[in-house]
Design a protein around this nucleic acid. Structure first.
Lengths: 146, 146
DNA sequence: TGGGCAAATTTGGGCGTCAATGGGAAAATC
DNA sequence: GATTTTCCCATTGACGCCCAAATTTGCCCA
């Protein structure tokens, strides 16, 4: 099974477009994904992107809840109201609307980060900071390679 | 199956009209919906909008309740007394009467938020706040996107 | 091993179409 | 008769589609 791995930083052009890294596009192609589901990450200032299955996963969880509860409302607000389907253009580029910029602080460059089943869009410096914080966290919890 | 997804913020013009986002209009068209049922959300300061089926859904819920309970009374009061049917104009715009403004605080801009089977009208800053609160709530209950 | 060529990828714009918005005029309502 | 609502059109800006340049990557061969 192919997964989204590694990271890359690309530029946003004057029209607000950015190329999705070719390795990621070939993973999408192997999954037969044309429509990309994007939503704001719950913890980080990042956008998560994957196939329709990503949304389906959340909807299965939602279906288990009583639709009139606050929890069901909150979850729907995030995955439906906070999510979009988008398509890439013929060159494999993504149009970055305000939807993507508001939660991430993205301005003129984007870092793509593979997360196995999906990938993320980050503001480059925020990604570096999150990585550093993650390393520090692992060290503190005693999982060290040294 | 098409659903209402994502969010967008549009301006209200001098006549109190606002364009319903094109993606939402095409979902309505695919459902053959001409008359929109609108009512005040139970949890949030927002107006919910969908087809007649949305009202039918609540009436089914109502039918399950003992009609003499407080809950049945409240539900009927909200979905019947607090609901209206409206139509869009030829450009796909909605006329925002006081009905829409009172419980939402909407003034000169509206955020449309997809909720799968229906969509919502929010005052923009209230929507952002509700999203943030929902994220915080899910965090505590262990629902993580990681 | 290194250079050089070829292919793929990223980046930059032109242009047409559609959506959002603004405003005037006609029609309906009170 | 006056106010509100609906229709119509005009402008603006965003987005998709197409093609071209520049940069990077990988491969082959000397």
């Amino acid at each position: 099974m192919s997964r989204f791995l590694s990271n890359a930083t690309n530029k946003i052009d004057a029209k607000g477009r950015v190329s999705v890294p070719a390795p990621f596009r070939s993973v999408l192609a192997s999954m037969d994904v044309e429509e990309l589901y994007c939503f704001q990450d719950f913890h980080f200032p990042a956008i998560n992107i994957g196939g329709p299955e990503l949304l389906a996963r959340f909807e299965r969880r939602l279906a288990e809840l009583d639709p009139f509860t606050q929890e069901a409302n909150d979850l729907s607000l995030l995955i439906h109201g906070g999510g979009v389907f988008v398509r890439l253009d013929k060159e494999g580029r993504l149009a970055l609307t305000d939807f993507f910029r508001v939660h991430t602080g993205i301005e003129d460059e984007v870092t793509f980060a593979g997360r196995a089943e999906f990938f993320q869009l980050w503001r480059p410096d925020a990604f570096l900071a999150a990585q550093a914080a993650a390393r520090a966290g692992l060290k503190l919890s005693g999982t060290s390679s040294r």
